[in-house]
C-alpha cells in the first residue's frame, strides 16, 4: 500500500543563536493578565562562583577519607568506546561491588566520574555540566589513552587531546582499551590516593577555575550555560 507522503511545513530558518529557545529572554503573560519579563539564564541558574570544601584535620578527616574511599559511587555516563568496559564490572567475573564501587544514575549522587575514552567537544560540554553538578569531594578517572594524549584520535578535528586541561584528573588508566581488570586497579589506586588525602583535585579545579574555564571556552564555541553549573 502506498503511504501518502505529504511535504512538511517549510520550517522557519533560524539564525545561529547559542541560547536554547526555552532559555531566551522573553515576556510572558501571567494568569492574571500582567506581563512578566523572564530571563531564564539569570533567573533559574545560579551564577555564584563555587567554594572549596573544607578539609577537616586529624583523625576526623582520616576517618572521612576512609569512608569516601570505601564508598565510590560512579556516575553512569559513558563517553567513548571505554563505556563498554564498565558493564562487565558488575558481572560475576569482576564484581566491583565487593570493593565498595557502585553505579549511580545521576550526577547528584555520584562521586567518581569515569571519562571512558575519547571525548568529543559536544560530549565535553555535557561532561563538564555533569562534573560540576556532582557534590564535592569528587574524583575523575581518565580511562584509555584518548584521555591522556588523544590516542588514535590525536589529530581529529573534534576530540580533545588532554583531558587534564578541561577537568582535574585524579587517576589515568592507560591502554587502548584497558581491560576491566585495569579499571579495578585504577579504583584501587584512587582509593589509595583518597586514603592518603591526596585526591583533592575538586578543590584544585575551583582554585584554578579561570584557567579551566578559559580552556573549556576556547573549544566550546556555543557556550550557552552559566559559568558554573550548580
Amino acid at each position: 500500500m502506498e503511504k501518502e507522503n505529504k511535504p512538511q511545513d517549510i520550517p522557519v530558518v533560524k539564525t545561529k543563536n547559542f541560547i536554547a529557545p526555552e532559555n531566551e529572554k522573553r515576556t510572558v503573560t501571567a494568569p492574571d493578565g500582567s506581563l512578566i519579563e523572564v530571563d531564564p539564564i539569570n533567573d533559574y541558574f545560579c551564577q555564584e562562583r563555587p567554594e572549596e570544601y573544607k578539609v577537616k584535620s586529624g583523625a576526623v578527616e582520616k576517618f572521612l577519607n576512609w569512608a569516601r574511599a570505601e564508598s565510590l559511587w560512579v556516575l553512569g555516563f559513558g563517553t567513548g568506546c571505554g563505556s563498554i568496559e564498565i558493564p562487565p564490572l558488575v558481572t560475576p567475573r569482576f564484581d566491583m561491588y565487593r570493593y565498595g564501587v557502585q553505579m549511580r544514575p545521576t550526577p547528584r549522587q555520584s562521586n567518581v566520574f569515569i571519562i571512558s575514552g575519547y571525548l568529543s567537544v559536544k560530549t565535553l560540554k555535557r561532561a563538564i555540566r555533569s562534573y560540576e553538578q556532582m557534590p564535592s569531594p569528587k574524583y575523575v578517572i581518565g580511562l584509555g589513552s584518548c584521555t591522556i594524549n588523544g590516542g588514535m584520535y590525536w589529530d581529529s578535528y573534534n576530540t580533545i587531546n588532554r583531558l587534564d586541561h578541561y577537568l582535574p584528573v585524579d587517576v589515568y588508566i592507560a591502554g587502548c582499551m584497558p581491560r576491566p581488570e585495569a579499571l579495578l586497579a585504577g579504583f584501587a589506586k584512587l582509593k589509595e590516593l583518597i586514603k592518603a588525602g591526596k585526591a583533592e583535585k575538586a578543590n584544585e579545579y575551583i582554585r584554578n577555575l579561570d584557567w579551566y574555564k578559559a580552556n573549556q571556552k576556547k573549544i566550546i564555541k556555543d557556550w550557552n550555560m552559566p559559568d558554573y553549573n550548580w
Binding site: D95, G100, S136
Partner: peptide
C-alpha cells in the same frame, strides 16, 4: 560476592560528609 556487610554504614558516613550542592 556482593557488597561488604558494613557497606550501608560507610555509604551513610560518606553521604553525611558531602558538601551539599
Amino acid at each position: 560476592i556482593g557488597i561488604p556487610w558494613y557497606q550501608p554504614w560507610v555509604d551513610l558516613t560518606k553521604l553525611y560528609s558531602l558538601k551539599s550542592q
